[in-house]
Design a protein around this nucleic acid. Structure first.
Length: 296
DNA sequence: GGAGTCAACGAGGAAA
DNA sequence: TTTCCTCGTTGACTCC
């Protein structure tokens, strides 16, 4: 079962009950029982990376703000964990202070956890020993529940306060550093997707403008070839690159503005870009040209 | 086996 | 100086 994803060769000795906690009830009443490390200090990062020693007190929870309505499981990784090839459990990187019985209280009474939570202490201790010199990168795969919970939280706020970070870490049985990294990577993914979307949009606009440009150039060539006198030329026809009729001043043949925003590739391209407003064509004489407005 | 994904890391910059 | 961020990268893992 993916929920119990673990790394390494050894199967999880005992599967945890998959019972969900009550939908993230922000664990208000459980605070006293939380045994997970939660110290918000100036040296937080280092502490979080090495939350292996010392009993830390639980600060006040920001119960509500980081509490999307997503179910959260109580420390699934502790039971699902198994040793990896380096002899430590990457998913056991839970803030542990050794008070196993207290960590157990994260789960509701209906949730039985059959593997001693103290497991993690030894594992993490051995991790330090094993990796003492050469630092081996740990690979953690977040469970669906963890990812969903983090996603929900990310939708609410893409950056974290210390309290939110600690709260999320607490709730998901992750180290605050892991939550922080997840948010960093998530922001990067968001930005990448946005960049790709922008790129696609610009590409489409560029193609449309190129088409329009070719068309206008053909028309200019035709006009030059005809060498006809140039009375009030029917621009509505010849500027057909713009899909709607252009309002032409009857007295001076000035086109006052591009008709409707969003109707041309140009306006699509410049949508939301205040420096690129609609342009104006005034007194069209050969060669036909468009004069940018003052706002261009 | 290669490509893609993603957690984790380090460097460097900005803000306080 | 510290903290947090972005950016680029690495490496473990998965999927085909």
């Amino acid at each position: 079962m993916e929920l119990e994803l673990s790394l390494g060769d050894l199967p999880a000795p005992v599967k945890a009950n998959n019972t969900m906690l009550a939908p993230a009830t922000c664990q208000g009443e459980d605070n006293d029982d939380l045994a997970l490390g939660l110290r918000v200090t100036a040296t937080e990062r280092d502490d979080q990376d090495n939350q292996r020693t010392g009993i830390e007190t639980v600060e006040g929870e920001d119960s509500d703000e980081a509490c999307p309505e997503l179910p959260v499981r109580a420390s699934p990784f502790r039971q699902a964990s198994s040793a990896n090839s380096w002899g430590f459990d990457v998913n056991a990187a839970v803030p542990v202070d050794g008070r196993a019985s207290m960590a157990r209280s994260l789960s509701p009474p209906s949730m039985h956890m059959e593997v001693p939570v103290t497991q993690g202490v030894d594992e993490e201790a051995s991790e330090d020993e094993d990796n003492g010199g050469g630092r081996v990168r740990k690979k953690l795969r977040l469970s669906k529940e963890q990812s969903a919970f983090l996603e929900g939280s990310f939708k609410e706020h893409s950056t974290l306060t210390l309290e939110q970070k600690s709260s999320l870490a607490n709730r998901l049985s992750l180290r605050p550093r892991q939550v922080e990294v997840w948010f960093q990577n998530r922001r990067a993914r968001t930005k990448l997707k946005q960049t790709e979307a922008d790129c696609e949009q610009l590409k489409r606009c560029c193609e449309a403008l190129a088409r329009e440009n070719r068309k206008l150039q053909r028309e200019v060539a035709e006009l030059r070839a005809s060498r006809a006198p140039y009375p009030l030329y029917n621009l509505n026809h010849h500027m057909s690159g713009f899909s709607t009729a252009l309002p032409v001043c009857s007295s001076c043949s000035t086109i006052s503005a591009v008709s409707s925003p969003g109707s041309s590739p140009m306006s699509t391209l410049f949508a939301g870009r205040p420096h690129f407003g609609p342009f104006t064509v005034t007194h069209p004489v050969l060669p036909l040209r468009r004069q940018p407005s003052a706002t261009l």
